[in-house]
Design a protein around this nucleic acid. Structure first.
Length: 417
RNA sequence: GGAGGGAUGCCGGAGCGGCCGAACGGGGCGGUCUUGAAAACCGCUGUGCGCAAGCACCCAGGGUUCGAAUCCCUGUCCCUCCGCCA
């Protein structure tokens, strides 16, 4: 949810919204609805004030004067009721319109759409493709079985098996211990949340089609633990000393991947179910830009630790999504495709999400909304894809990345006979 | 699954349908006293919106009423007991 006051008063704020390619007349409609709403609120408040005093007088009046006073108070009440109905309608309209406005893009965000992000830096050399691509290799090694998974569950599911399964757990441990070192509180979050939680996290109604409904609208499977982590401080006012409050959530994530038929169908690049370690941070507004850099740095640390060549992209305004004011993707080099593909991502939502969540921070002379940020520590199946190519050896064996060895208990996996 | 009880301010805990934004105690903050501290005493101490007047908030949403923290309905959460499962 955007800040209506700033939309009203700050041309810069409005420009940030326009840069996300929102039609001008929508913004103007919101402003019109807002003006109407504010006017009506004033009227209703004034009327209610009169009604309140009228009612109060009844209590203090001698019994014989009461009937007349009740009569006039009753009339005020009728008037108030009609006005309130109108206010409700105006409010609902304003809300519906305002919810459609995205968080303004930060001034540092480049203009443009999907392929117009700014490459901030490129790290590492880009090797030639290995003999087998990730899908063929992982099936050959017995790490991944998508064929049988399709029998059990359908397409875009996988059995991750043998050393592949152990690698998965190692990645989770590696990511978790890395972010814990950076003061993220480890959290195993609920994987099912109720509708309200989805709404407040900003996933409903926009991404409803991406989410599995498992209890007739009562409970939904998370697409990311960000949802559960954002609910951790809903309707709370935190003290400045508590900030930044950093949480590292581990959960299995479930995505319907509606509308991606035919895309990324090989292997486990894009699946309906995967494990993910996610960073989530609540901080004071003036901290959030720095916090964003910090989260990006941790993501780079994790990717670098795994020895993957990558580049950092400052996502363009038109490609940011509604909630993010600024977003960096880390794209790792996928040799078989000869391209950089998204491996992690981190966003600064500023106060956009916090406004709906009601998460505030105590400040001198009042309180304000916190800023929230999130970033991927590791999305496991996607990460395995990259490892299967970069750590595949010429002789067909697999070498375990150095940083994972403390967690796997083995250093190589021999090629199948 | 069945039967009951509860949800009030930072915490504990009162609260006849009007005088309750809310008693009282604790905590916190400030002050008096003291060389300093403790004790004692005094004062202050919820939030959102609004320039303000004011409006709203006693779990949430509806309802009754001129008037609801107080009455009614629904939901959520917590507690106790029975059953069931681990």
């Amino acid at each position: 949810m955007i800040d209506l006051k700033r939309l009203r008063e700050e041309p810069e704020y409005r420009r940030g919204i326009e840069r996300k390619r929102v039609r001008d007349d929508l913004i103007d409609e919101v402003l019109a609805a807002d003006a109407e709403h504010r006017l009506l609120v004033q009227e209703v408040d004034a009327l209610r004030a009169r009604q309140n005093t009228a009612s109060k007088e009844i209590g203090n009046a001698p019994p014989d004067e009461r009937p007349a006073k009740i009569e006039t108070a009753g009339q005020l009440k009728d008037e108030l009721t009609t006005q309130e109905k109108e206010l409700q309608a105006v409010e609902a309209r304003l809300r519906e319109l305002a919810l459609q406005l995205p968080n303004p893009a930060d001034a540092s965000v480049p203009d443009g759409g999907e392929d117009e992000g700014e490459v901030v830096r490129v790290v590492g050399d880009t090797p030639a493709p290995p003999p087998l691509d990730h899908a063929a290799f992982s099936e050959a090694m017995g790490f991944v079985d998508t064929k049988r998974a399709a029998e059990a569950s359908g397409s875009r599911f996988a059995y991750i098996m043998r050393e592949g399964a152990l690698l998965e757990l190692a990645l989770v441990n590696y990511a978790m211990s890395t972010i814990v070192r950076h003061d993220f509180v480890p959290v195993i979050a609920p994987a099912l949340v109720r509708e309200r939680t989805m709404e407040e996290a900003g996933f409903f109604p926009t991404d409803r089609a991406q989410v599995y409904d498992v209890d007739d609208g009562e409970l939904f499977l998370l697409g990311t633990s960000e949802v559960a982590l954002s609910a951790l401080h809903r309707a709370e006012t935190l003290t400045p000393e508590e900030l930044p409050a950093r949480y590292g959530g581990f959960s299995t994530c479930f995505r319907r991947e509606a509308g991606t038929y035919g895309k990324d169908t090989r292997g486990i690049f894009r699946v309906h179910q995967f494990d993910k370690v996610e960073m989530f941070s609540y901080c004071a507004p003036e901290q959030s830009a720095g916090e964003h850099e910090q989260i990006l740095a941790i993501e780079e640390e994790i990717v670098t630790g795994l020895g993957l060549p990558y580049r950092v992209v400052n996502i363009a305004a038109g490609d940011l999504g509604p909630a993010a004011a600024r977003k960096f993707d880390i794209e790792a080099w996928l040799p078989s495709e000869g391209a950089y593909r998204e491996i992690t991502s981190c966003s600064n939502y500023t106060d956009y999400s916090a406004r709906r969540l009601g998460t505030r921070v105590k400040r001198a002379g009042g309180s304000g909304l916190v800023h929230t940020l999130n970033g991927t520590a590791v999305a496991v199946s996607r990460m395995l894809v990259f490892l299967f190519e970069h750590y595949q050896q010429p002789d067909g064996s697999f070498e375990v990345p150095y940083v994972l060895r403390p967690y796997t208990g083995f250093t190589t996996v021999a090629a199948p006979a």
